[in-house]
Simulated assay, not measured.
Amino acid sequence: MSENKPPAASGQGSAAVTSPAYQQFLTDLFGVIAYGELSAFERMSSDARFSPTLHDRATLGRLAVREYAHFERVSRHLEGLGADPETAMAPFQQSVDAFHDRTRPGDWYESLMKFYVTDAISDDFYAALGSRLDPESSALISSLHGSSEAPGEVLFDRLQRSLKDDPRLASRLALWGRRLVGEALTQAQRVVIERTFPKGLADALSGEEYDAQVRDLFSQLTRNHSRRMSLLGLTA
């Protein structure tokens, strides 16, 4: 692999891992991950106060603390790369904030669905990228989404109980879920594909290979979302 291209998979040689192009790729990637974790903390903390029960409020609060811990871990990783976390996050702030402005939930149940849909798509997306990173960066991404009490499981259980108690909620959340997945996939293309991939993955692949892998990735994200909605008894 040439000096200005990132490794195509974990475990590549140290020269490729330390190349300027790959370091910038990692800075962008972990910059957007860090801002996503910080935003998730803020949203969960804010929406927790609208919880219908104290148990729900405590659950969202606990998940919010988990997101902030992830933010701190990613920030330390950025510092280890020689990057300033705030500087790394800054290019993504406007776009991510605009996404959240476009997808403001109407109530607490829509908030749960938003957490469930967007966090799951983010997890899938970064897990797919993780297979192309150096071992240390790949391990960090895996650990962020593979720890105990994953938010997706907690949110799934709570949504499932809500839908069972109020069948009329299903049609509203199904429609909301369809809007969210469209916005989330568009956001992934705008924030990460347009900025991060050309500095990393695209440099290591031909144009056709790159386009094919991007199509495959987004097809997989869509299939995973449909499966999750089906498990909730909702139409994707």
Rank of each mutant, 00 (worst) to 15 (best):
R104V: 13
S46E: 11
L60S: 04
L231T: 05
S230P: 00
A8M: 13
R57K: 09
L54M: 10
F115M: 00
G80L: 04
M113C: 03
H55T: 10
R132Y: 01
R73N: 07
A15R: 15
T118D: 10
D119Q: 12
P135V: 00
S137Q: 08
F156G: 04
G61K: 11
Q94V: 08
L63C: 14
A170P: 05
V32D: 11
P198D: 12
T196K: 11
Q24H: 11
Q220P: 01
A188E: 14
L38H: 14
A202V: 01
D165M: 13
S10A: 10
L163S: 05
L221P: 11
D107F: 00
P52M: 10
F25D: 02
H70Y: 01
M229A: 06
A184S: 12
G11I: 09
S2M: 10
A204K: 05
Y126Q: 01
G207M: 09
G61H: 07
S122D: 12
G152D: 15
V96Q: 02
F92W: 06
T53N: 03
F71N: 05
A188Q: 08
L54G: 05
L38A: 12
A8E: 11
L221S: 09
E153S: 14
L144F: 07
Q220F: 07
L159V: 05
I193V: 15
S162C: 04
L140H: 08
L221N: 12
A34F: 01
L60I: 06
I33N: 05
A83I: 06
T103S: 07
A8F: 02
A83C: 10
S122K: 06
L234M: 07
V96G: 03
A9Q: 14
I33W: 06
E37Y: 03
I33R: 08
L180M: 06
F125T: 02
E72P: 03
M1L: 11
M113G: 00
Q213S: 14
G130V: 10
E42H: 09
Q187C: 05
E149Y: 06
Y68M: 09
L144K: 02
S14G: 05
L159C: 10
A90S: 04
L159A: 04
T222A: 03
M44R: 02
A69E: 15
D166G: 04
S147C: 01
A21H: 12
S147H: 10
S148P: 01
S219V: 02
E42V: 09
G13T: 13
S2T: 13
V191P: 08
G36W: 07
S51M: 04
P7G: 14
S10E: 11
P20K: 09
